[in-house]
Nucleic acid binder design. Sequence first.
DNA 1: TAGATTGTTAATCGATTAACAATC
DNA 2: TAGATTGTTAATCGATTAACAATC
Lengths: 207, 207
Amino acid sequence: MKSPEKISEAVVRRLPIYLRYLLQLQSREIHTVSSQDLGTRLNLNPAQIRKDLAYFGDFGRKGIGYEVDYLIDKIRQILKLDRTVNVALIGAGNLGRALCNYTAYQSDRMKIVAVFDASPAKTGETISTLIVQPMEELSTTIGLKEVRIGIIAVPSAEAQQVADQFVAAGVEAILNFAPIILKVPETVRVHYADFTTELLSLAYYLE
Amino acid sequence: MKSPEKISEAVVRRLPIYLRYLLQLQSREIHTVSSQDLGTRLNLNPAQIRKDLAYFGDFGRKGIGYEVDYLIDKIRQILKLDRTVNVALIGAGNLGRALCNYTAYQSDRMKIVAVFDASPAKTGETISTLIVQPMEELSTTIGLKEVRIGIIAVPSAEAQQVADQFVAAGVEAILNFAPIILKVPETVRVHYADFTTELLSLAYYLE
DNA sequence: TAGATTGTTAATCGATTAACAATC
DNA sequence: TAGATTGTTAATCGATTAACAATC
């Protein structure tokens, strides 16, 4: 892996897209793929794909393309997904449930290992293999289970407060489903999963 | 509204973000806001906000800022949300449920008016005020209820097929939660709500 | 009038794409 | 060898930001 040189967010965000499609190819026992193929399938420019990958090393072979297994390994390394990363979720509503079940199969080395909810009505319930815990246990559990990423799936009104608790407990990154901008220290990375923006902006394109 | 000149996707995607914050200001009875205020709150550059809005007209007043009520009206017009837009959802799992409940309160003129699921075990169930219908009724219901946008909340393996049915039934736009690229006619706009990409890319930024 | 803030132009910055020598 | 495809440079394209005259 080359490294030095700052990688843009756009590039990093495409890596999981490559990874996902490569895993599909792997399961279909396809061993080699060209930037051309990838581009066609993922609606991306082949030059862009080659450039993205070349930031991290020479993974391809001229005249041949990329070896699927090898590239999967490499992208996992880049994304630090060569080991399992533990994730905690706050909010055991429908969305929280969906996320747990989703990462249960699908997970590519990201695993939800704890679920919390502020409502006593929810704590004690089971979601896939996990028991919903009360917020009081957040800090201890996060330390114990070495959780590094937190997911926020609570209503907007509670999101900031819940983020503060994640930060205090020492998580390094947050995925926020609530449609508000969180205030967190610079050292904590926040990504937003905001489907309302996507949905409302669709309306603009109606004939 | 000015119009002519093609508006970039980036601009359109910020409009709902402005709208959401403006609605918050409105509910707090704040009547005026500057691009400075908006920028601070939304982590955006004030010049960018002014430029975004100026594509569509002169909505502000020099020395004063933007009138909240007026700007809300204007953005709604731009997004074609001055009337309710009807939406249909396929997939009555946890994610589908979350989406229904979400748009039930929150909705800014976007309303889910029908839910479908392929599984007989799900059809007949109630989600908020809606009854889950079998796929056979898709086409008729979409015509009847004047549905213009479809949401896909089914597993990846079924997503393309479900998209085809939406297209055949005449929806104009699709929001896809399944992490695959859909093939649809150019006339149909597709947005992707892919939280796995956001989650996996977070790992890259772990210390 | 003085202070604030817009709309807009020009400058900057960054990301995407085209093109091609290198080479399998 | 001929064909395919990479890695990379240079060209293009587009988006963001700074700056400021206009004006409330």
